[in-house]
């Protein structure tokens, strides 16, 4: 066991050279590479944290937006429901009015038809009564229907109540004799004499033929009237007929107004 000091010296040099070479080619490159990789990993982690933070912020932002949209949606839905409800009420009201108008129109037409029917019926009835009256009067007596009407009219001129007679006497207007039929001259003379005798002997008497009277004769002066008309009987006939048709007398008066 001996020590070769030359070898010892050479080995010390060899060892120091090896230290330097390994430091140059092994430790430093490896440690640098690990440090760089560690730094890269740390950078990546920091970057990931930043991204995560940004993502959190973005997510929070979107969640806020979604919440705002949800609120807007609820508000819009409420508004839309309110508008729809209002529209529905308006449409219902319009439909109700429309139905009411249709109903009123229909009732108006119905009443008009009833009225027309009654008018036609009145005319037909008057015609039938006239014809029947003429035949009755011609069969039972020598006078005609017109003669009998004038007779009744003359009787009424003779039996005037005092109040009406007073007003008629005070009238300064012409006396208009309106008849549904043409009067013959003897009849006119008889009526004029009756007026002069019972009311005013200086009255100026005019004769007018009007189909409005249907069947009758009347004296008009100064807003007063005396006469006879089959219309008085027809009105009673109408009332009875309307009653049978369940006619609403209120509506009749309303439509008349």
């Amino acid at each position: 066991m001996e020590i070769d000091w030359l070898t010892v010296s050479a080995q010390i040099v060899n060892f120091l050279v090896l230290v330097w070479l390994l430091k140059r080619f092994l430790y430093k490159p490896i440690i640098d590479a690990m440090d760089r990789r560690q730094k890269g990993i740390a950078d990546n982690i920091n970057e990931a944290k930043d991204r995560d933070h940004k993502a959190q912020l973005t997510m929070q932002d979107y969640e806020n937006k979604i919440a705002a949209l949800e609120q807007d949606k609820t508000k819009l839905m409420q508004e839309a429901e309110a508008a729809a409800q209002e529209k529905r009420l308006a449409l219902e009201e319009a439909a109700r009015k429309d139905v009411q108008q249709q109903k009123e129109l229909w009732q108006k037409h119905l009443h008009q038809e009833q009225k027309n029917y009654l008018d036609d019926l009145s005319k037909t009835t008057v015609k039938a009564i006239q014809d029947t009256g003429r035949r009755v009067f011609s069969d039972l007596s020598d006078s005609s229907l017109e003669t009998q009407i004038i007779t009744v009219f003359l009787k009424r001129l003779h039996d005037l109540d005092d109040d009406l007679l007073k007003h008629l006497k005070a009238s300064t207007s012409d006396f208009h004799i309106v008849s549904a039929f043409e009067l013959e001259a003897p009849m006119k003379q008889k009526i004029t004499q009756a007026i002069h005798k019972n009311i005013n002997d200086s009255a100026n008497v005019n004769y007018i033929v009007s189909s409005d009277l249907l069947c009758g004769i009347s004296l008009d002066t100064g807003g007063y009237q005396v006469g006879w008309n089959i219309d008085e009987y027809l009105k009673e006939f109408d009332q009875r007929l309307l009653k049978s048709l369940n006619y609403n007398s209120d509506y009749e008066s309303k439509t008349n107004d």
Binding site: D4, W5, T7, V8, S9, Q11, I12, F15
Partner: peptide, 11 residues
């Protein structure tokens, strides 16, 4: 080699 180990020990 004792020379080598001596060299390392001296180091």
């Amino acid at each position: 080699s004792l020379s080598t180990t001596t060299a390392l020990a001296i180091s």
